[in-house]
Design a binder for these strands. Structure first.
Lengths: 143, 143
DNA sequence: ATAATAAAAGCATTCATTTACTTTTATTAT
DNA sequence: ATAATAAAAGTAAATGAATGCTTTTATTAT
């Protein structure tokens, strides 16, 4: 459902959000190391997130990527739509291009149930909700 | 969640099952044309399904691929496991290799809900359940 | 037996995604 | 102003999945 890059993006953003309290910005290398991902993939992907205003960045010494309180309050779906596009939750379970309630594939009704549940979860869960268990040592971004 | 080949496999099997009443076997070309997929991909994929005993095949004139009543009663998950492997419904939503209830990613609980719902659907729905709406002209495999 | 048919198998190519490298641009501290 | 830092941007390579092609093997009807 989600691309590898998109999963990496969610992890990176959760990490960034969890660093908010420290008041410090994070560089590409730091983020990539923490979530155990390729530096280059992370760099490209963060660029996209900045362009889509999911996160902010600043150049130069003491520069890096960071988030505002408002951005921490964004739903996860903002990350997903920025990276994988707006149609993730509209795709047919069997890959038909025009699958809909009026022209359904045989799995349409059931698959839509799953897809909609996932979408709801991604709309309801805020970035800050997910970084909380990380800060409490209850959840992990690697392993 | 499912690979392109896996989606093609599900469509091919639903088509085969829907042809059961006719008592006729279907060749690679016929199947590929009906579900609008690459002949070669379909050939390879059907081979795998035969090896995993999801469907049967016979060579020679009047040969082709076909299914028994028993095979039509299989759950969809049999197709998925044959093509994409047994771990599809065990994978972490963020791609962690060791994500579990004791070492969860921040999305674990919520994602598991979605994953489990999808798995349940794939275990409960039988192949013959899905070819029924097709036979009734209520659902489609192309478009 | 032979020819025709159709799946099985192996190898090669294409395509998309991911990862890697290099150069450029902006910012800050000195 | 200058040097150092760090993101932005553009291009290239590597990987993996999907597709394409060719040969082999098995079966059936004649």
């Amino acid at each position: 459902m989600l691309s590898l890059t998109c999963k990496t993006a969610i992890k990176a953003v959760i990490y960034l959000a969890s660093k908010y309290e420290s008041g410090q910005k994070s560089g590409i290398i730091e983020i990539a190391e923490y979530i155990d991902a390729s530096e280059h993939t992370v760099g490209k992907m963060l660029q996209t997130l900045v362009k889509e205003e999911v996160i902010f960045s600043s150049k130069g010494p003491n520069g890096g990527f960071y988030m505002t309180v408002k951005q921490k309050g964004q739903p996860i779906i903002n990350i997903i739509e920025a990276i994988d596009g707006r149609d993730v939750f509209k795709q047919c379970g069997l890959g038909l291009s025009k699958c809909s309630s009026t022209h359904p594939c045989p799995m349409h009704i059931d698959y839509k149930l799953v897809r909609d549940l996932f979408e709801r979860l991604c709309r309801e869960k805020k970035i800050c909700d997910l970084c909380e268990p990380l800060n409490n040592g209850i959840a992990y971004l690697v392993g």
